[in-house]
Design a protein around this nucleic acid. Structure first.
Length: 559
RNA sequence: GCACCCGUAGCUCAGCGGAUUAGAGCACUAGUCUUCGGAACUAGGUGUCACAGGUUCGAAUCCUGUCGGGUGUACCA
């Protein structure tokens, strides 16, 4: 259809002397036609003619391989034969169908899920993981080289706090778990706040002391630190493995402390940053319309988030030579990233900086109101959510004898897909009954469509690749159109990383296939028809799998 | 206070670089087919697109204001 678009642009330019963008859209179900074009209406003013009249003039110039009609206020509706659509798909089809190389030669960094080492993996890091992974896959599908980095929350004083709390807890170093450490950390934070309010600093001093002992390389401190880090990292890795997520790097905040501090000093010397009387350092951002300056260094000279993120930004831009940085972090930090990106701009750092933000995961609270998801005690563990998901899958599929791996794929597929049903900015209402539903727009529904296609292909394997002459592909038009939409969709989603459009597409394709089976039998069709239909199913299966792969949704063997 | 996001069907959400009669899923109802995997398909909507103005031949979509909800607003991460 691209050549037809070009043709229309050419005709419009010739007849009316203007260049207009030409897009095709779907035609309402009860009106004849496969594609609809609204150029005539766009031109009405410039040409000083009625849209319908313009439409007729354009149609007169269009190639005769398709048929056209003027409809409604001046739409040009185009009807294409199934065979023509088949021809287009056949010509466009290759191993990488749907992908493009628009980002070739450029490097992007996708940062996710940026877990906090001090506490167990919570549902709060679910969306960063799913969205960050989708961002990576979408960019790769558009030709970018993508580096992924888990920006671990390991800076500051977790170790000191852990060590102090751990000693007080009386727990055994050989059996202590991440859950213990998480509780110790949270309790210590609370206690320290109370202590500070009371004007004391015993706990704070103890934590500081542990940090000094660690820096001095004292044996017990080193051992504890290594032990805590291992427990935390093992835990993060095990959860990520269940989610089938991984990153190329795990450069935590602490990795960037020195680099960040050095940069702050450098720009302070250059007069870009400003030192306050209390010793803190800020970066004024008035020229970007941001009234609150960004605090770059604490008054006691210690690093904070902005310090390490500055160092990190510098590292990614200048060591990794990244052209684009994508941060998969929640909406609460929008202002923070606005500031950070403004600082980068002020420093003259050239790169496309993008905060891929998203809403919260909500639940219906005891009062019936919608609220951010949490348990009574605090956060919900992602592991608990995954366990619950697997239990539901096993119960729903009890007769299917699923392998553990398939259970994992279905349960994580359901959770991940639910993250992409709406625009990422929209919060998610976590409703297990809906997410694991096998009907409707859900991950399992799409996965099922894939599995079904695979089975059909397997059962008819002897016909794959057979000749099918001049089959008309009349019953296949809707599916062919859908498949032809895929490449433009992937390309169109690269800028704003709108993964939900991929999810919507996968659902529509799965639905279209179900409709297709209704009126186009495969196994019982005569040989040439059967071969033709198998050709189509094979392409549809590939596209659906490819689409789901962009979302990180895996396909089970059975379900 | 200021900034950002949001308000579309009973519920959850698409659509918002203007365009044919505003869509999907869930739920509900009624059907279809000797079922290649029925976990299917088909049909069924009285929605003030929060409200009020404005721009336009045409607004859920763009602009302004109002109301309602959420988030953020330098030494937390």
């Amino acid at each position: 259809m691209d050549s037809l678009k070009t043709k229309i642009i050419e005709i419009v330019k010739r007849l009316y002397g203007v260049e207009v963008p030409v897009e095709f859209s779907a035609v309402p179900a009860d009106i004849d036609g496969d594609y609809s074009c609204n150029v005539a209406m766009r031109l009405a003013k410039a040409a000083g003619k009625a849209p319908r009249e313009i439409a007729a003039e354009i149609i007169a110039e269009l190639p005769s391989e398709y048929s056209y009609a003027v409809a409604g206020p001046g739409f040009i509706n185009i009807t294409v034969s199934g065979q023509a659509l088949f021809g287009q798909l056949k010509e466009a089809w290759n191993e990488d169908y749907g992908y493009n190389d628009s980002g070739a030669g450029r490097i992007a960094v996708s940062e996710f899920p940026s877990t906090n080492m001090a506490k167990p993996y919570s549902v709060g890091h679910l969306r960063p993981g799913t969205q960050g992974w989708a961002a990576k896959r979408i960019l790769e599908a558009n030709g970018w080289k993508v580096i992924t980095d888990n920006h671990l929350g390991d800076a500051g004083t977790p170790f000191g706090i852990w060590a102090t709390g751990f000693k007080l807890s009386g727990l055994d170093i050989d059996t202590v778990t991440i859950y213990d450490l998480g509780e110790i950390y949270i309790k210590m934070k609370t206690d320290m706040k109370a202590e500070e309010a009371a004007g004391k600093h015993e706990l704070a001093d103890a934590a500081q002391d542990w940090l000094l002992r660690l820096e001095a390389g004292e044996a017990e401190a080193v051992e504890l630190s290594e032990r805590f880090n291992k427990i935390s990292l093992d835990h993060i890795h095990s959860v990520m493995k269940r989610m089938n997520l991984s990153t190329d790097y795990e450069l935590g905040e602490s990795f960037f402390v020195e680099r960040g501090k050095a940069l702050v000093q450098k720009y302070l010397n250059e007069g870009v940053f400003v030192k306050n009387p209390d010793g803190s350092v800020i970066c004024p951002l008035d020229e970007f319309g941001i009234e609150v300056p960004m605090l770059m260094l604490k008054s006691n000279g210690a690093a904070l988030y902005a310090t390490t993120d500055l160092g990190c930004l510098d590292y990614r831009l200048h060591e990794w030579k990244a052209d684009r940085l994508v941060y998969a972090v929640g909406a609460e930090q929008k202002f923070y990233f606005e500031q950070l990106f403004a600082v980068a701009k002020k420093l003259g750092w050239k790169a496309e900086l993008q905060h891929v933000w998203f809403g919260t995961i909500d639940q219906v609270g005891p009062d019936g109101k919608r609220e951010k998801m949490s348990s009574r005690k605090g956060v919900v563990l992602l592991e608990a959510m995954l366990d619950d998901a697997e239990k539901r899958v096993r119960e729903n599929f009890s007769d299917a004898e699923l392998s553990d791996e398939d259970v994992r794929k279905i349960s994580t597929g359901a959770i991940k897909y639910s993250d992409f049903i709406g625009d990422r900015k929209t919060g998610i209402l976590y409703d297990p009954a809906k997410i694991f539903a096998l009907t409707g727009q859900s991950g399992p529904f799409c996965q099922y469509a894939c599995v079904r296609m695979r089975r059909i292909l397997e059962k008819n394997a002897d016909f794959a690749g057979a000749e099918f002459g001049d089959y008309d592909f009349a019953a296949e038009k809707a599916v062919l159109q859908k498949l032809l939409d895929f490449p433009a969709l992937v390309a169109g989603v690269a800028d704003n990383l709108e993964a939900h459009r991929i999810a919507g597409y996968c659902f529509e394709l799965a639905q279209e296939m179900n409709r297709y089976y209704e009126n186009a039998p495969i196994s019982t069709a005569e040989d040439s028809v059967r071969a033709a239909r198998l050709w189509l199913v094979e392409k549809a299966a590939a596209v659906l799998e490819r689409g789901l792969d962009l979302l990180g949704v895996e396909i089970p063997e059975k379900m």
